[in-house]
Each structure stands twice: as C-alpha cells, then as structure tokens.
Write a protein that binds this DNA or RNA. Structure first.
Lengths: 216, 216, 216, 216
DNA sequence: TATGAATGAGCTTTCATTCAT
DNA sequence: TATGAATGAAAGCTCATTCAT
C-alpha cells in the first residue's frame, strides 16, 4: 500500500539513515523555501544539514533524491496530520471541521506546503508518480468525508461533483500557502477558514453561515 | 496604469526590439513548458528564437529578463482575452458566462498558463511585483463582475466574500492547467466549466444547474 | 575508407576547430606522456593548450574525446610518415629500408608512440575500433612489403607467417618506445635498427648482415 | 637478491597479512583486468577481497600499494612458472621448449599478464624499479638459454644480439596477451608458438621448421 | 546590428583516506 | 583486529555572460 520509491544509501545502519535524512530534510526545506530547489546547491544542503558534502552523498545518490525525500516527507506529515482527525459522522459539521483542520495544518506547515507545492514539478518523471499518488490519497480523504455527507442526506450534490469539490478543498488549502501575498494581509487563518467554508457550503441545507459568523 | 518594468536593450530601433522579443517569447515559452526555466539554457532560447546568443543579449540583460518578458506577455494576453468580454449586466448569467470564458481562455492557453503559474515564483524580488500586479488586476475583473451581481441583488454574499470568491475563480481556472494529470482524464473542459460553475454558484437564487446541464 | 569517428564541437568554423584541436593535441600529448591520461586533468589540458576550460569544452564533449583525438592524430601522423616511403621493388633491401624507416619514425615520435601505446586501451568500447583499424592498416603495410618479397622469391616464408612477421615488426618498433628503460642505454636507434633487422632477416638468402654491418 | 619493497601494514601477525594480501590481490586482479587500475575504486577492491574498506587499509597504506602488490605477485608467479623448467642442455631444442613453455604460461595467465603489462606504468617512480628488476630477471633467463646455445655452437649470433633476442622473445610472449584482438582469432596458442618459434629460429642451422610442423 | 568564440565561476559528484567504535 | 561512517579535495563539466569582429 505504502509503496515508497527507495532512495539508495551506502550507509547500512537504518537508524542512522533515518536520523541523517531527517537532518537533511530539515535543512533542505529551509533552503528550498528561501531560494527554491534549483538555486540551492548540494553543498548548502550539506552545510544546513550539519554534515559535509561527502556525508550527504552517503545518504543519497543525486541532488534530486533530496527533493524527492523532502516532498515525500512533507506529504507524509500533512497526511499524518489529516489522518489524526477521526470524522465519520457524515454531518456537515464533520466536513467543516475537517476542512478547518486541514487549513490549520496547512497554515502550521506553510513553508513545507509551499515547497511541496512549488517544487514537486521539478521531480523527475521517475519520482513524480509516487508523490502524486500521495496527493491523490489526500484528496480522497475529502472525497470520503463529502460522500458520507451525501449518503446521510446532509449534502445534495451529485457523485460527479464530489471528486471536484474535494480537489477544490485541497487546492484552497494550498492557496493559503502559495498565495500568501494576496491573502495573508487580508485575512487571518481563522477568517480564511470561515469564509472559504461559507463559500463552499453556501446554500447547503443545514449550514448556517450567519450563525457561525456570529461566533467569530 | 500599465506601469511596466523596462527591460534594457542595446538596440535602439523599437520596432526591431518588439519583433525580436516576440520571437524570443515564443521560443522561450515552448522551452519553459517542456523543461522549466532553470533547465532551459540561454543558448537554447536563442536557437528557439531563431537568432544567435549574441543577438539574444542585445535585447535583454540577463536570463531572468526573458522570464520576466515571458510572464509579462502571458499575463497581458490572458488579460486581453478577458477584457474582450463585455459583461456589465450584473446578472448571474453574465457572471457564469464570464467564468466560462475565462476557463476556455485558460484551456486554449494551457501551456502559457502553466509556465506563468510555475515559473512566476522564479522571478527576482525586483520583477515579481510587476507581474503580481497584473494578476491582481485579473482577479479584480472577477470582483467587479461579482460585485455587480451583488449590487443588482442577484447574488447574496457579503462584501468580504467577494474578494475571496474572485480569487477562487481565478485559481480554479489555473487549476485546469496545473492539475491536468488529475482533471483532464476525468472531465472535458466543458464538463469542468459546468461542474465548477455549479459548485461556485450552488444555492444561489436564480441559478439553475439542472437547466444549464440540460443544454450541454 | 578513412571513416573517422566524429568528435562533436560546438564551434562551427572548421579552420578554427582544426587549429584549436592541434593546440589541444599538442598540449595533451605532452601531459599524457608525463602522467598518463588518468592523472591528467581537463584543466591541465586546457592550460597546456593555451585556452580556458570553457574553451576546451567548446571543441570536445568529454575528456575521453581528447584521448581519442590524440590517438587518432598520432596514428595518422605515423601512418603518413610510413606512406611517404615508396617501396615497391619487392627486394629484401626494400623491406629492410622500410623497417629502418619505420623505426626511425618511431624514434622521432617517441613520446607520441608511447602515449598511443599506453593509453589506447583507455579508450571506450565505442572509440577503440576506429583506432585499432588504423593500427591494422599500418601492419598491413608491412604485410604488403613482405608479400612482395615472397612473390619475387626473395623471401621464403609461408603465407601464414607473413601476418605474424608484420606484427612482430610493428611491435618491435613500438618496443623502442615503450621499453626505453631497457633499450636506450644499450643501443642507439641505428644499432637497434641494425640488430633487429638482422634478427628478423637472419638466414634469409641474399641478406648479408656482415656487409651491412660494415657500413655502419 | 629478492629485495622486495616493503608495503607497510598495521597488522602484526604475518600469517594474517599474507592471507589478507592474497585475498586482496585475487580481488584486485579480477577488477583491474576488467576496468584497469584507475577506474577501480578502493571500495571495490575491499568488497572483491571479502572485507571492509577499513580492513583494506590495515594492510596497505595507499591504493598504489595494491597495484604494487598485484604487479609484484604476478611477476613472481610468472617467474616461478618459468623457473620450474630446468633446461640446461644448451640445445636449440631446449631453447624452443623454453619459449613454448613461456608462451603457454602467458596464455594460462593471460589476465594477469595483461594487468601487469598495462598497469605497471601506473606505478610510482618509487615502486617501478622493483618491478622492472623482476622483469629484467625474466629476460635474463632467456638470455641464459640463448647463450648456452651459442656457447655450444648450436646458434650463431653475436653476444650483442643475445640481449635483444631475449627481449624479443619476452615481448612476443606478452604480445599474445596484449594483442589478443589481432591474434586470437587467427591463431591458437599452439599455432602461435609454432609460427613465432619458426620466425625466431628461421635459418638457424639445425632448426627444422618443416619437421616440427609435421608433428602438430 | 548580428555573430559566435571565449571565459571562468561554480555546479554536482566521486573517492582515497581516516578514525572512533 | 575489523568496521564503516565521515571527510573534503578535487574531478569533469556547464552555462550565463562578454566582446572582438
């Protein structure tokens, strides 16, 4: 199920590999978010990771491996955060809690999301599918949430819309990261959540925008 | 209004500059969409433009200038396409026609939109604002469209939502370009337009999804 | 007939390519003979050629191309020297003049011969056949010389020996280059020629070692 | 007499050193014959030897030490094979048996001979003399064989030729290894021995090529 | 104005060697 | 004695940019 593309390492000790790659990912994310993948050099990655260029290459084979590891990790972390919410009620409330949760995760992991968002496309034809698969799984989580609402009769949209709505939610989450310049000076994350939820669920029976707005 | 960042050229004849830059942009777009800005070399750009590397540098100063010219041009073209629609009715129908028009433009200019979308972030701090400003102007066109509906009482959303809704529309257009892999094998552009419009305008008084669907 | 493996150059002007490659070959030979191909860096080759590393790579694509050019050139030069002798008499005297001529060429081009001898094996599977073909052609020149003697009845060896004898002559020429340490302090090139010729042609009717020796 | 250049080892147990170096030489020869000394890494040598890179460096000090050990060992083995023949008769027959024996040794140890032949030159100025000395000793074995024939009146060549003839024999043996591409598809080792012996001893009183050929 | 040869800083990657365990 | 993770100098090669023609 969780078929991961293996990145070869000449170091055998798996604990060490795990640890070093953690350092590497942390270092690389902070560089990628500043200057992007292409403008970051492997030496900079090594330095930011706290070891030498030689050591870096003990744990990867090419610079692109770093990008893959970074993207892979970020997707895993975002997904793990999402998985932690256990919403099976099939109510509109559950759905909007799910959306709010996702948006907050995106807000908390802004840098990572931005990197994942902007640099995924730099992955090779070889590595890309693995990452896209993870993205798809995240979208599917929203599909499930939505479908449950539909099945319970809380939401009246057609099956064909579900997939698209799920993608919209996913992209609107990312938007908060990649359109900071247009959004962050206008809304707080809470406002963004509230307004996007309203727009998404407007006109839905049982969704009371006015009520919610009263609270904030 | 149309404050453009000047790209220096050592050639004085403006007609020539215009012509050469057109060639350059055409060549560069086709390269950028294949391999991205960073993986494209200036030599390749020169060759694809039909002149020598020396000549290329008569019309720009740095490689980044090419990117700026490309982004700038694409925004202009997309905006020009959008401007061509003259919708001042303030009806929901006008709005959905506007959306459909925009989505079709995005579909027709897929490659360009993808480039503008993916490479804009590679612009220097210096050039970025000029391009973002153009993007904002496009979003404002949708704001205007929406506001007219609200003013006419066709649409009941608050002022604060207008800006966000406009951005959503804008991003959903781009989505059709940058999430091809997830969308194009599921929807045709017509289906995409129809479904997105439904989701955007669902629950809006006067918007009849069923009716529209019947037409297509 | 003279099918040469093309080495790509990004410079178009063929005269310039020819000139630069001459510089390059001259520089590379002098380095290869000192330290061998593997211990010579591309930067050193560039410097010894009188231009920058960037320029070097305008005229070749990989370091191995330099080796190929060097080997190819040396074979051509040696062969050209050999071709210059016009010996069709089919006499033993012609043969021994031919041998002497070849040995003198080898002596004059000692460094080149040493390089060609020691580094040819470092050529890629791709380039090797082109060079070996040239070597074979040189061996065939001796075969022809020998066969003419046999046909004229001046030499009595079987057809099957001819090829081998030709190879021996060829290798004995190279020996003068690659076994300097063992030969040069014992013989002058003239002595080497004389003695090897004696050994090769000893017992051949009409070959008078004593006579020849008297001359020197 | 057998002055050997010591290769330092931090391991004291001589039996162990001997054993490890045997492993190392075996591994290295097989690598060197495939890819040459320069293209072989120390890690590969360690792996092929059956121990770790750390252990490798307990038994040598530099990569070049491995080359020296390999060359040294090969020379010893070839020489040991040659020493095993006990030919003191001073007859032409003894000499040709000696030659045949040497050629067969070369054939049996083709890979080793090729390595010794091609990589000896990569030895440092420091180590080279030790290896060349061994080579010289092998040549001297042929000199002795030849001189005995001359002294017994079986062979009529001058003292000055003896050294050269011995070298020719030595090089012709190596030829069988380093000119495989030109020889092996034309001759079997037996044919090669026969024909080379004929060429070397042609015209020698008492040498009957025809007779020998009849035997094979 | 157009050309393309020349440049060299700077990139990714390798690998001989060391040394703490 | 054996291990293998760590190191960094140095390699091959690229490419944005310049400038003489």
């Amino acid at each position: 199920m969780d078929k991961r593309r293996e990145v070869q390492s000449s170091v055998k000790d798996e604990r060490l590999v795990e640890m070093r790659r953690n350092q590497m990912i942390r270092g690389a994310v902070s560089l990628f978010k500043q200057k992007g993948f292409h403008r970051t050099t492997t030496r900079e990655i090594a330095r930011a990771s706290g070891f030498s260029i030689g050591t870096l290459y003990e744990y990867i084979r090419t610079k692109e491996d770093v990008l893959y590891l970074v993207c892979d990790r970020i997707y895993d972390e975002v997904r793990a955060q999402l998985n932690s919410m256990d919403l099976n009620g099939g109510t509109i409330s559950d759905l909007s809690i799910g959306i709010a949760h996702y948006f907050k995760v995106v807000d908390a992991m802004q840098d990572e999301v931005l990197v994942m968002y902007q640099e995924t496309k730099s992955l090779s034809k070889d590595a890309l599918p693995y990452v896209l698969k993870k993205e798809l799984e995240m979208v599917q989580m929203f599909e499930t949430l939505i479908r449950q609402c539909v099945e319970k009769g809380e939401l009246h949209i057609e099956e064909k819309q579900i997939h698209l709505l799920a993608q919209n939610i996913f992209v609107q989450g990312q938007m908060w990261g990649f359109r900071r310049w247009a959004l962050h000076h206008t809304y707080t994350i809470e406002q963004y959540i509230e307004r996007q939820t309203e727009l998404l669920l407007i006109g839905i029976k049982g969704y009371k925008a006015a009520e919610k707005k009263g609270e904030s």
